[in-house]
Simulated assay, not measured.
Amino acid sequence: MNTTDPAGRGVIVTGAASGIGRAAALRFADEGARVLVADLDREGAEATVEEIGRAKGTAVAVVGDLSDQRVVDRVVDTAVGTFGGIHVLVNNAGVMDRMSALGETDDDEWQRTLRINLTAPFLLTRAVLPHMLAAGHGSLVFTASEAGLRGGAAGAAYTASKHGVIGLVKNLAVMYRKQGIRANAIAPGPTATNIRVDAGPGAHGPATIGPLISTTIGRIGSAEEQAAAIVFLASDAAAFVNGAVLPVDDGWAAT
Rank of each mutant, 00 (worst) to 15 (best):
G85L: 09
V128L: 03
V63G: 13
A147F: 02
D65V: 05
A157S: 11
L102W: 14
D68H: 05
G136S: 00
V90E: 07
N117Q: 14
L118W: 01
A144C: 12
M99V: 04
E104M: 06
L124Y: 06
L118T: 04
D107A: 15
V72I: 12
G138W: 00
R112T: 12
V76E: 10
T159I: 03
A120T: 03
A147P: 03
L102F: 15
A93G: 06
L66E: 04
V90L: 11
T78K: 08
D65F: 01
F83E: 05
F142L: 09
D65W: 03
S139R: 11
T159P: 04
I116M: 03
D97I: 14
D107T: 09
L123S: 03
L118G: 08
N91E: 02
A61L: 11
H137F: 15
R98H: 13
L129E: 09
A157Y: 00
G155I: 15
I116W: 07
A134N: 00
L89K: 03
D73E: 10
G94L: 04
A157W: 03
R74M: 14
L133P: 07
R112E: 12
S100N: 15
F83A: 10
A134K: 11
A101I: 14
N91M: 01
V95N: 06
M99F: 15
A61R: 04
V75T: 00
A157Q: 00
G151S: 11
F142N: 02
A127N: 07
V141K: 00
A135W: 09
V90R: 10
G103P: 00
A160M: 09
G103A: 08
A134L: 11
R74C: 12
L118Y: 01
G84E: 13
T159N: 04
V88N: 04
N117T: 11
R115V: 12
I116Y: 03
D73A: 06
D73P: 06
M99I: 02
M99S: 10
E109K: 02
